[in-house]
Measured scan of single mutants.
Amino acid sequence: MGSVRTNRYSIVSSEEDGMKLATMAVANGFGNGKSKVHTRQQCRSRFVKKDGHCNVQFINVGEKGQRYLADIFTTCVDIRWRWMLVIFCLAFVLSWLFFGCVFWLIALLHGDLDTDYKDDDDKSKVSKACVSEVNSFTAAFLFSIETQTTIGYGFRCVTDECPIAVFMVVFQSIVGCIIDAFIIGAVMAKMAKPKKRNETLVFSHNAVIAMRDGKLCLMWRVGNLRKSHLVEAHVRAQLLKSRITSEGEYIPLDQIDINVGFDSGIDRIFLVSPITIVHEIDEDSPLYDLSKQDIDNADFEIVVILEGMVEATAMTTQCRSSYLANEILWGHRYEPVLFEEKHYYKVDYSRFHKTYEVPNTPLCSARDLAEKKYILSNANSFCYENEVALTSKEEEEDSENGVPESTSTDSPPGIDLHNQASVPLEPRPLRRESEIGSRR
């Protein structure tokens, strides 16, 4: 089982795998120059863009038009607004034209077009017409509009002379109601789609790998820009990579689940303020055997998904993003964004995407760390350097704002901070800030 798991979770494809794949392509008759073999020097295209759209195009789909027309309502909801407006206008105009032609044909076959009612006051002739005051196609078209929109100006009306005319008036009224219901329903469904809710759900630009509770963890940050909550919010993550099976089958995008606390339930989050999602790199993680150097040379993509129900409509929305291997910062942490004021908490989104480097973060893999092949620094050293990194950030910001350097908390000259780390230190809580992250 261990060997199978290692093969499945191998992220960085070796040169031997690339040569094996190329040999397979030639042997199977696919070596026509169009096949692409992804190596370390040639990274694959992003499968999920940063804005959440999937970078996929469908080609050679059989009976595409028929399949889309069979699900016309979903098609109308998914198309762009400009095409929705075109369909909206065409549906009414074509129905008016169709029934206008029908009423014109009825008048033509009944002989109503030969009668001039402007110079004739004989009401008996008017009563013999199928539709009064309809003696041309324009008049028939206007009567069709008046019937379907129930305008009723009063000059044109159907008589009991022709039952077919009466039937067409009733039929057009029913068709008009159906068109109204369909168009209004599609427009309302399109307006109520929770897709735009994703514009106020954000992911951090970069993911980070750092120590948390004595273990290497992959972390990324999510935030909600609205005050309205995302009900039943939960997160998922998958690692996408290519691999070759033991039988020699090439899988271009193998999807591997990344555990973010599904078993323990901590994948469900209360997204009021930005939260750091934590994936513990343990023996079940696809990143277990990867060191910093392996991450730098790897070719994979981590897709992160945030799902929840919109509070206003109770409709489920899904926000997506992805991180390539070069977008994962090893040995970094996110800057705090949640600050405790006197009577409330304040979230500073200008710090949302910012990170700071944490010294002495192990550069080895989580496996080597678990097997004690890498000796961690003293816990006080880690905490102290973590505090120094934050303090230096604040000093830089104070210097930019014009604060005198004498007010900063610099260490005395001639003292090495790293050498001082081995000395037991008193706890130094942050002056006014605390970061709330997901705790395992």
Rank of each mutant, 00 (worst) to 15 (best):
T39H: 08
V202E: 13
V337M: 12
V102L: 06
I178W: 12
S377I: 07
F171H: 01
V278M: 07
P429I: 13
Y153T: 09
H205K: 15
A165F: 00
H332N: 03
V310W: 09
L108F: 08
S434P: 13
I415K: 11
I178A: 11
N55H: 04
G111N: 12
A233V: 04
V235Q: 00
K227A: 07
H53R: 05
K196F: 12
A139Y: 00
P359R: 05
F73C: 13
L271S: 04
L240C: 11
Q66I: 13
A325G: 11
I174Y: 06
V278I: 11
N259I: 06
A366M: 08
I281Q: 02
K393L: 10
Q420D: 14
L363S: 11
S3C: 02
D120M: 00
V337K: 02
Y356I: 15
A298E: 08
K34F: 07
S132R: 04
M84L: 09
W96M: 10
R80A: 04
Y345A: 07
L369N: 02
A22G: 13
S95G: 09
I179W: 09
E307M: 04
E433W: 06
V303L: 11
M219P: 01
A237W: 01
G31R: 04
V12R: 13
L108T: 14
Q41P: 10
K241G: 09
M211C: 13
K128D: 04
Q420W: 04
S14C: 11
F137T: 03
R44T: 13
S242P: 11
N419E: 14
V131T: 02
I145R: 01
N28I: 03
V4C: 05
S291I: 00
S321F: 14
N206G: 02
G18T: 05
A314T: 07
M24Y: 08
A325P: 07
Y323H: 01
N401P: 10
K49A: 06
R268L: 07
L216R: 00
L287V: 01
V278S: 07
L113W: 02
V208G: 00
I305T: 08
Q318D: 06
G265Y: 07
L369I: 14
E199G: 14
T6E: 15
D213E: 15
E280M: 13
D257F: 06
Y374H: 04
S411Q: 11
S127G: 04
R221H: 01
H279S: 01
D299N: 03
G308T: 10
R432M: 11
A298S: 10
G402M: 15
P429C: 10
D263F: 04
I436G: 14
D122E: 04
N380H: 09
R67E: 04
A22W: 03
I164M: 07
Y153V: 03
I266G: 13
S127R: 05
G62E: 04
A421Y: 05
T407R: 11
N224R: 12
F103M: 05
F155T: 11
E283V: 11
I258S: 02
K346N: 03
E335Y: 03
V187Y: 07
Q172E: 04
M309R: 12
N32M: 07
D51M: 06
G261L: 08
A140R: 00
D112T: 02
K241W: 09
I174S: 02
S242A: 12
E199Q: 10
V175F: 07
A237E: 01
D122I: 01
F92M: 12
S173F: 12
Q318F: 12
H38E: 15
E311R: 04
L230D: 05
S377Y: 04
G33K: 11
S273G: 12
A165I: 03
H418A: 11
P427R: 03
Y117W: 01
F143I: 03
V347G: 03
A140C: 04
W96D: 00
E146W: 02
V358E: 15
D78T: 14
Q66D: 05
V77F: 14
F30V: 15
T391E: 14
S228H: 10
V77C: 13
D410R: 05
L338R: 01
V56W: 11
H38I: 07
V12K: 11
A379W: 05
C319Q: 05
L90F: 04
D299V: 08
M309L: 07
V134K: 00
E396H: 12
V126N: 04
R156E: 03
G248Y: 03
L271K: 04
Y349F: 09
L113H: 08
N297C: 10
R44I: 10
E335T: 06
A25Q: 15
S411G: 13
A314C: 14
Y345H: 14
S381R: 04
M211R: 02
M219Q: 12
R212C: 07
P194A: 07
C217K: 09
E232V: 10
L369H: 05
I269S: 08
P424K: 08
C54A: 12
W220S: 13
L376Y: 10
F300N: 00
T409G: 09
N28F: 03
E311A: 13
E340S: 10
V77M: 14
K373Q: 14
K36R: 12
F203I: 05
V208A: 04
N386T: 12
A192K: 04
K118R: 13
P194I: 03
L97V: 04
I79L: 10
S3R: 02
D263H: 06
A107Q: 04
L105E: 01
V231F: 11
D263I: 07
